[in-house]
């Protein structure tokens, strides 16, 4: 399967370099999209270890909500950035060897081993 990546094409060297850089960027964006919810879960589950009022906790509701909303806004901003940067790739999905190919392979590989 990895042979597919290295399959030489008729494109010029310059085009190849450009494509590969772009494809690399896209793959990292997908990584970001995948990791974003994990970050969200980890950060939003931090309150699990906070002591509650019944356990004589002293964490005020205002600071707790500030924490939660700050994370929320952060996640939204990162999500929007990722989605925006991803856009050009999707706009031309019919391209024969577009950057999405690799993601397709990765999905397939994951599915087969999973």
């Amino acid at each position: 399967m990895s042979a597919q990546d290295e399959k030489p094409t008729e494109t010029s060297l310059q085009a190849r370099v450009f494509l590969e850089r772009r494809s690399y960027r896209q793959r990292r964006l997908i990584d970001a999209a995948r990791i974003l919810p994990v970050v969200g879960i980890v950060l939003w589950f931090v309150p699990l270890v906070w002591p509650s009022a019944e356990e004589n906790g002293e964490i005020s509701t205002s600071s707790a909500s500030t924490y939660i909303f700050t994370i929320w806004i952060g996640l939204i901003v990162v999500g929007a950035l990722v989605a925006w940067r991803m856009a050009p790739a999707d706009e031309s999905p019919t391209k024969p060897s577009g950057p999405m190919d690799e993601s397709a392979f990765e999905t397939r590989r994951r599915d087969r081993t999973g």
Binding site: P47, L48, S52, S60
Partner: peptide
């Protein structure tokens, strides 16, 4: 507003971890 929140009867973090994770 934040001060008012903290002064109210729900002004302190009082959520059980189980319900926090479970309801999410």
């Amino acid at each position: 507003m934040l001060e008012k929140i903290d002064a109210s009867e729900i002004g302190t973090w009082n959520v059980s971890g189980g319900r926090w994770a479970g309801l999410t």
